[in-house]
Simulated scan of single mutants.
Amino acid sequence: MTSLIIDTDPGVDDAFAIALACASPEVDLLAVTTVFGNASLETTTRNALRLLALCGRTDVPVAAGADRPLVYPQEHEADRVHGSDGLSGRAHLLAPGPNEVSELDAVGLMARLLAEADEPVTIAPIGPLTNIALLLGAYPSLRGKIERLVVMGGAISGGNTTAVSEFNLWSDPEAARRVLVEERIPTVLVPIDLTFQCMVQRPWLDRLAASGPLGETLVGFTTDYVAHYTAFFGKECTILHDAIAVAEAIRPGLLRTRSYPVEVDCAFGPSRGALIADRREPEIVATFGSKLARALDIAVETDVDAVLEYLLSRLAR
């Protein structure tokens, strides 16, 4: 059984990720915590509550977290990708459930759950890393209660928000650097280089939509998302970034990783928010050295057909 906390900014692909965790019997979903990102904190929190109700998991607590980055304002949200309400303008179609936002904030709830846990907990941060940076800064004694972080974010070969930066890291580079560079908690980073490999096309979406009410609702959220990625790639498709990361959180080893020294650019220039990975061969690094201190496990490849079939088999239940 995997004890799991999802830290998220729903978000279309976040919706698929939450549904995947709810549909996985081997997961003990301890909480969903929310952060600004794809939409405002108020919107992402409302979406999280309603998505859990859609999945029949109103027992899972939801706590609201950071509404802004650690230091500098977020320049823009992702409404051009996810729609004005984070769910392609369809969030209002989700019925409110009986669940309410926790009296604790996201950091407080995560800290309590970690302190009370008998076994280490996996945390899947699939939005900006602000809440996780605050958690690790405020509660350093709880680091040992974290089994691992499975983070969706970063780009090695080219960004989706700027030429070199991926949205989650770009939204709060200072928080990303704290978590990915300064900490030493076991971490798997799932960058867009990997998630782009797992492209979802219309036949897959049609199979999910035909599987039942949950699948039909999830596919209904993808209207703006599909339009964005169709323009991005020049063919009808979409990318379920966050669901791929949560799949790895549930099934360790589903994605194959390589360890690279990394840095996150926090300067104010065209590379702000970029993930810098030293991908030279280890022998070269040993000979010439590297100024990048943290070696991070980065997902670089997977069996794409197996991953997509795994997602479909769970979400279509």
Rank of each mutant, 00 (worst) to 15 (best):
I298P: 02
G56R: 13
S3R: 11
Q201V: 15
L29N: 00
D28L: 14
I250N: 02
R314W: 12
E103R: 15
F16E: 01
A111G: 08
A245G: 13
T45K: 09
G159P: 06
E281F: 05
L41H: 08
I132A: 11
Q201E: 15
G273P: 01
L214C: 06
T33G: 08
G65A: 10
P261T: 02
G273D: 00
G83Y: 06
L134C: 06
A19G: 03
G37S: 08
D9W: 00
Q201P: 05
A31N: 04
G37M: 05
A106T: 04
F288K: 03
S165A: 15
R46G: 14
T45I: 04
P282A: 10
S157H: 14
L113R: 07
V12E: 00
E174A: 06
P140H: 14
V246K: 07
R317G: 13
M1H: 13
E283P: 00
M199P: 09
D242R: 15
A21D: 08
R279H: 00
A176F: 00
V264R: 01
Y139S: 01
P25C: 04
V101S: 04
A316L: 06
R294Y: 08
Q201I: 15
A286V: 07
D67Q: 13
L20F: 02
L87Y: 02
D13V: 13
R294L: 13
A39C: 11
K291F: 04
V12L: 09
A78H: 06
R46N: 15
G56L: 07
P261V: 06
P252K: 07
A124M: 04
V27N: 11
V81W: 11
H92M: 13
L205E: 03
V150W: 01
R314S: 00
C55H: 01
V32I: 15
L94N: 09
I185F: 09
L87E: 04
V121Y: 05
Q201M: 13
F221R: 08
L208F: 04
Y229L: 10
A64S: 07
R272E: 09
D14I: 10
P191Y: 08
F221E: 05
D305Y: 11
R46F: 00
V35F: 10
L29Q: 00
A66G: 04
R50N: 11
R148S: 05
A21Q: 08
T223G: 10
N131A: 06
E248A: 10
S88I: 06
R258E: 15
R314F: 12
T238W: 02
D105K: 07
T238Q: 12
H228W: 11
A306G: 10
A277G: 02
F221V: 10
L312C: 14
G11D: 09
T162L: 08
E77V: 13
R272S: 10
V32P: 04
V71A: 14
R256P: 00
D224R: 10
L208E: 05
T122W: 00
A117F: 09
G234M: 07
L254K: 11
R50E: 13
V121C: 04
A227C: 07
A175I: 12
H82R: 05
T230S: 11
L208M: 05
G137T: 03
R207G: 11
R317A: 14
P98G: 10
R207M: 05
L240F: 05
E103S: 12
V226G: 03
A53G: 10
D7C: 14
D224E: 15
Y260H: 13
